Simulated scan of single mutants.
Amino acid sequence: MTVDLKPALTMVLRQGTHAAHDRLDKRMTALNLFSSHDRYQIFLAVQYLFHRDISDIYSRADVAALLPDIQNRNRLKLIEQDMQDLCVPYPMVRKTPPVVGTLSAAIGWLYVAEGSKLGANVLAKRVQDIGLTDNFGARHLAADAQGRSQSWTGFKAAVDALEWDVATSLRHAEAAFDRVTMHLNRCEPYLQAA
């Protein structure tokens, strides 16, 4: 009997992006983005820009073949509703979709987007202190219909069951964290007025 000791892709991505993820978390925490509506609006703008950039990935046929519920996982419309609730103007930044030629590349971007839903559990509790809920201003932080754990487990199981170009997935997951950081850099100057 042969035992496959190769680590699962999601574990490789988790380990490979740990430093970038940690830096981004620390920076967002330091900016105190969940302390007021004004500061949270900057977070919403960053979320909008990132999810707008990757929205095309959610309508790819190859992704849908892997994750049949992929279109229901896309949070862009929820972010837009949250922005409308709080009268947040759409940032005047041109949409720049990532160049995602292969499914391995798409998985790298989706790993970051889908993984962020786990952390959204903590953020959803924090924004309650400023009066935001799953029905007003923080819809995109709510759990998917099947729940956070089950949603992540389904994504993880689908991804970890197949062979991938691991280097490509990792490169694109790192690019996804870089993209969020780039959008935060664009939006951070607006915090001076908040």
Rank of each mutant, 00 (worst) to 15 (best):
Q84A: 15
Q192H: 03
Q150R: 11
N74C: 10
D4I: 09
D25C: 08
V46T: 03
M11I: 10
L118D: 13
A61M: 12
T153F: 12
V166R: 02
S59Y: 12
V3C: 03
Q47G: 08
L44K: 00
L66N: 09
D62E: 14
D25V: 06
N185H: 15
V63I: 14
T96L: 10
L76E: 04
L123V: 15
L33R: 00
G119T: 04
L118Q: 15
R14E: 00
M1D: 09
V166Q: 03
V3R: 02
K125M: 13
T153W: 13
L123A: 13
Q81P: 02
G115T: 06
G137M: 03
N74F: 07
T96H: 11
A113K: 01
V93A: 08
S59C: 07
Q81L: 12
T153C: 09
E114C: 05
G131S: 10
T168K: 03
R126C: 00
M1H: 15
S151A: 09
S149K: 14
N135Y: 12
L191M: 10
L44V: 09
V180K: 03
G101H: 05
L67P: 03
K156R: 14
G131V: 06
D134S: 13
A194R: 04
V180F: 14
Q81K: 15
P7Y: 08
H21S: 11
A124G: 10
M182N: 15
A105E: 11
Q81V: 08
V100Y: 13
V166T: 00
D4N: 12
S169K: 01
L141V: 06
L49D: 04
Q128F: 11
L66D: 07
D4H: 09
A138C: 08
A64C: 02
R73W: 06
V180G: 04
L49R: 01
S36L: 03
K125S: 11
L13S: 01
G131W: 04
F34K: 04
L118W: 13
T133S: 15
A45P: 00
L9P: 00
I54W: 05
A124I: 05
H140Q: 06
E114Y: 06
N135M: 13
Y190N: 13
A124L: 08
V63Q: 08
T133F: 08
N121A: 14
L184R: 00
A193V: 05
L191K: 05
A158V: 13
R73M: 04
W152G: 00
A173C: 11
L118R: 15
H21K: 09
K95F: 11
H183W: 08
Y111Q: 03
N32R: 09
R39G: 06
N135A: 15
P68K: 07
L76P: 02
A30M: 12
R60V: 14
